[in-house]
Design a protein around this nucleic acid. Structure first.
Length: 554
RNA sequence: GCGCCUGUAGCUCAGUGGAUAGAGCACCGGCCUCCGAAGCCGGGUGCGCAAGUUCGAUUCUCGCCAGGCGCACCA
């Protein structure tokens, strides 16, 4: 079915036949790579195989190409040309695009899903923001990219579990409790000094206000320790609920919310330290326990248990990643902000210390996000004076645009987020361009049905009628989709899907403007409807991967 | 000082060891008695600098220059 594989096999066979016939010297053959050429004058597929083989066969590329061409005798191959320094350009019998489309249509809504990941168990952990305040736009990028990556890996056949690590233990949670307490006391008219590492967000005041509403001043009667303990729980539950709500609104779901506390409660940290000590990767110095991370290329060893006996954040993370591996994942992917990149080495060191391969943990680093409005950098929210929250962004530009803009760039690039562009409901906006193509196809089907055409079964369409350059080009573009999914998944690069579906939508718009669908001769109409159907399902599939809606009308 | 990311068109960014390096925005000019003009068609002297590897480098390596982010017994 896959034409590339058929071609690869044929070329390999021809090369071996040429060797057997003495037209080529014996030798190792490189992998036969096929690509869609940059221009269609160079054929349907092209290969640089002859150039790659030149060295091992000690023959000039054009001679190799010539020998292969002479041995290629396939009826589906219209012609093969040797071009430039030795490219093989393959021109296929036009029938192949119609067979390609028939295969696409037979897969229906599943078209685009592949078996590339072959059931490999993989975990993706992302966002994992501290439950001490609202998500900001940086978390938004992680949430959009992470959820799209999960969808993408699933589309490529991986067995994926998504996870959020809740930092519900440690200093930041104590500071949360102290902050809420301070606001609570203020609301009850006391003068208090706000904690040095406290959280200044308006949401903390809201939490305190709700506590006053529900419980009045009864916490004043408790001991300070007891009061803080209770505030800690109340605030934590509230922050967590808010996080879940914001993420759900942003079309982000997690299979598992993993609590850091459970590690402390189950003694997982002590047990992990013990295991490390036994393996010789943990030692004591200056009263503290150190991980020997320099053994795996870190700049310095890292403290795991402080001299006061309290574990560091790294200690919990070591236990957490050990736990992940023990759950049987073959591959872990963590998505972190650029400000955490220095942390990668020590966590990998910990994983390696437990006897796993460090490559089993992949850390994807997301570069920073800058918001721009009217060409000006937006530093703070006008409303709150704090960082702009994900919720504010969703309110301003909508979930679809926010997700698409976060995903459409490579994670390695800093992201300049143009609020005006994302917000515009006009032709400037790439999100609407794609959604418009989908809505347009839906509209075509509505028109066809009104005209009495049965559009439910197009399997009898005579696809060979699709012979114009616009139709052929569109089918070829459509045919590239599954490989795009596999490739994007392998590269952990959801932005490739954003780009692909934008290109596909453009190709469809061109086709639409050149080829009338509804109202032409019946057989041709059916064939064009079938093509539109295939494009529709691919756009839907791709937008679903991105977590962006595919509206039937706009 | 060390580490990670980036430097491609006026702006924001894709892209590739190969044949004429692309898209969106912006700008200019065309296209609706016809399936949605949120659309289509046309308009382009650009890979930070300098060396190396290679038949071939914008892509790989080294060195500079510039920007971002880090460099805690914080998380």
């Amino acid at each position: 079915m896959d034409m590339k594989i058929v071609l690869q096999t044929a070329v390999e066979k021809a090369a071996k036949a040429a060797m057997a016939a003495g037209k080529l010297p014996q030798g190792e053959l490189p992998e036969i790579l096929l690509e869609v050429p940059p221009q269609k004058e160079f054929g349907d597929f092209a290969s640089n195989f002859a150039m790659q083989a030149a060295r091992s066969l000690k023959t000039n590329p054009r001679s190799i190409a010539q020998a292969i061409v002479e041995e290629l005798r396939e009826d589906w191959l219209e012609k093969v040309e040797i071009a430039g320094p030795g490219f093989l350009n393959f021109y296929l019998n036009p029938r192949w695009v119609h067979e390609l489309l028939a295969g696409i249509l037979a897969q229906g809504d599943r078209y685009g899903s592949t078996k590339h990941g072959a059931g490999q168990r993989i975990q993706v952990e992302f966002v994992s923001a501290n439950p001490t305040g609202p998500l900001h736009v940086g978390h938004g990028r992680g949430a959009a990219v992470g959820s799209a990556l999960v969808n993408l890996l699933r589309a490529a056949g991986y067995d994926v579990a998504s996870e959020y690590y809740i930092n519900d233990a440690g200093n930041q949670i104590d500071n949360l409790a102290l902050s809420v307490e301070a606001r609570y006391l203020e609301l009850l008219g006391q003068t208090v000094e706000f904690p040095a590492d406290g959280y200044h967000g308006e949401d903390i005041v809201d939490t305190a206000r709700r506590i006053v509403e529900h419980h009045g001043d009864r916490f004043l009667k408790l001991s300070v320790a007891e009061r803080r303990e209770q505030f800690k729980e109340i605030a934590l539950q509230e922050k967590l609920a808010a996080l879940k709500e914001d993420l759900a609104a942003f079309n982000v779901q997690f299979d598992h919310w993993f609590s850091e506390r459970t590690l402390h409660e189950a003694d997982a940290i002590q047990s992990a330290c013990k295991a490390l000590r036994e393996k010789g990767y943990l030692y004591e110095q200056d009263g503290a326990q150190w991980l020997k991370s320099t053994a795996y290329g870190d700049d310095k060893d890292r403290v795991v248990i402080r001299d006061n006996g309290v574990p560091t954040y790294l200690a919990a993370d070591i236990a957490y990643h050990r736990n992940k591996m023990e759950r049987g994942f073959e591959q872990l992917i963590n998505i972190w902000g650029a400000d955490h990149h220095g942390y990668i080495c020590r966590v990998k060191a910990a994983i390696a210390s437990f006897g796993y391969r460090p490559e089993q943990l992949e850390v994807l680093i997301l570069q920073m996000v800058s918001l721009f409005r009217d060409g000006e950098l937006v530093k703070m929210s006008k409303r709150t004076g704090q960082s702009v929250t994900l919720t504010e962004l969703m309110e301003e530009v909508g979930t679809d645009a926010a997700r698409f803009f976060f995903i459409m760039r490579s994670i390695d690039s800093q992201l300049d987020f143009d609020l005006n562009l994302a917000k515009s409901r006009t032709n400037e906006n790439p999100v609407y361009y794609i959604q418009y193509a989908h809505a347009r196809i839906c509209s075509i089907f509505r028109q066809a049905e009104e005209a009495g055409v049965d559009t439910t079964d197009l399997s009898a369409a005579e696809l060979s009628l699709l012979s114009s350059q616009w139709e052929v080009d569109l089918i070829k573009k459509l045919g590239e989709y599954p490989e795009e999914i596999s490739q994007a998944a392998a590269e952990r690069a959801p932005h490739r899907i954003a780009r692909y579906v934008h290109d596909l939508a453009g190709q469809f718009h061109t086709f639409y403007n050149q080829c009338r669908i509804v109202g032409v001769e019946a057989e041709l109409q059916t064939a064009r409807l079938a093509l539109a159907k295939g494009v529709q399902s691919a756009i839907r599939h791709a937008l679903a991967v991105l977590g962006v809606s595919a509206p039937d009308r706009m």
